[in-house]
Design a protein around this nucleic acid. Structure first.
Ligand code: MN
Ligand code: MN
Ligand code: MN
Ligand code: MN
Lengths: 218, 218
DNA sequence: ATAAATTTTTAGACAAAACTAAATATTTGT
DNA sequence: ACAAATATTTAGTTTTGTCTAAAAATTTAT
């Protein structure tokens, strides 16, 4: 597979929400930042290669083989993201662009060894699950921290309230996107939470918890 | 620069022995495993871009800018090779093919961080020097171990005598290509050497030393 | 010095991946 | 149900990098 074919397969995979929905030419074009006519050309080719099911005017979906390829690419992309953050001290929001290139390196051994070097991580720096070599993985969902049960941990991926006072509070208390958060205990009385964030134990109010999104895998 | 352009620049650099000799179309074609006519096409383009000096029928050499590019690529290639061996436990002879791909990843930050992660290595797993960010580096030369002065260290890169008994000896004494060897002391009497190899101190005869090639940087 | 051998370039073609403009199919709104 | 709006495909180009075959230049050998 060429780099270009790989990026199309990944786009179709992501647009299908990992559930292999049929997606339209226009959707793919928008995601790939290209023209619909280019997409038509490419999906015809991918169809010939047995990677997608394509019905003119009706849309495109991945074949079993195409899904396998997509998961391999997602695995590679996310492992590289972990590498960049964990080993090279990249920040949360800098890794995507570079991983977008690294994911295309062809060497099964490289990925196996990288996986090992990283300690077989289960999620990437954005909280998204890393498919196993066989293509298995748990789905990730986004929840408000206040709705996460005790014992679960996830990654902080967004805020509901983005007002200056709230962001200032987060900053002052050293809570940032990309941080790993574990829910340790919940107070019955006021719904406040005892959480562990980056190996630090802190106590936050229910209002705070109700404005932070966590990505968790079940 | 495209991946293809980069590989041509590297080929011209290596054929020019790092001293920017003018090289012929046919030499480039052979190294790149392509046709001379393709080389002509490409060097014309590289010439337009100011990366090479090209005179029809006379050959091609790198411009100052082209040399800069070549050194950046060599730096990236060799840093990745170190990474593969040191961090991912690849062996000496497996790294080239993968580094050939990784060298094309575009991210200055990635290379700076990788360099740091590896502890700013000076040589790659083949004993070849790694250019600094500014493009400076020491030249490497290949010498018989018996001719290397005391105190110097290098990497074992080949054998002069490749007979079964000699190779068997090396195997039995755990001496392999890719090993780092430092010359600790030399006996006046018989020319035998005390060397350190992979943190092990051993004593070898002059005959052995006269059949092992070391790559050293001065 | 000239012919033969070799190297290099040119001309013309092709495949991959993109684009624009025009044609056609589908969906939406009345 | 039909016209208008939207989505999609087709047709024809372009760019990049490659190739083969033929022409031209250079080098080598007599
Ligand atoms: Mn990509
Ligand atoms: Mn990610
Ligand atoms: Mn390369
Ligand atoms: Mn090397």
């Amino acid at each position: 597979m060429t780099l270009s074919e790989e990026d199309y397969i990944k786009a179709i995979y992501h647009l299908g929400k990992g559930e292999n929905h049929t997606v339209s030419t226009n959707e793919v074009a928008e995601k790939m930042e290209t023209k619909p006519s280019s997409v038509t050309d490419m999906v015809k080719k991918l169809s010939e290669k047995g990677l997608v099911n394509y019905r003119p005017y009706k849309g495109v979906s991945l074949t079993g083989f195409g899904q396998k390829m997509a998961l391999t690419l997602v695995r590679k992309h996310r492992l590289w993201e972990v590498f960049l953050v964990e080993k090279l001290d990249f920040s949360w929001d800098e890794v995507h662009e570079v991983a977008e290139q690294l994911e295309h390196i062809k060497s099964e051994k490289l990925i196996d060894r990288l996986d090992k070097h990283l300690g077989f991580p289960q999620v990437d720096p954005h909280g998204d699950p890393i498919p196993s070599k066989k293509g298995e993985f748990k789905k990730a969902i986004k929840k408000l921290l206040s709705e996460v049960p005790i014992g679960v941990n996830g990654i902080c991926v967004g805020v509901k309230d983005s007002s200056a006072p709230f962001l200032k509070f987060l900053d002052k208390n050293n809570i940032a996107l990309g941080d790993t958060i574990a829910v340790k205990d919940k107070e019955e009385f006021d719904g406040s939470l005892h959480i562990q964030i980056k190996n630090r134990d802190i106590h936050i109010s229910q209002q705070i918890a109700a404005n932070l999104y966590l990505k968790i895998t079940e």
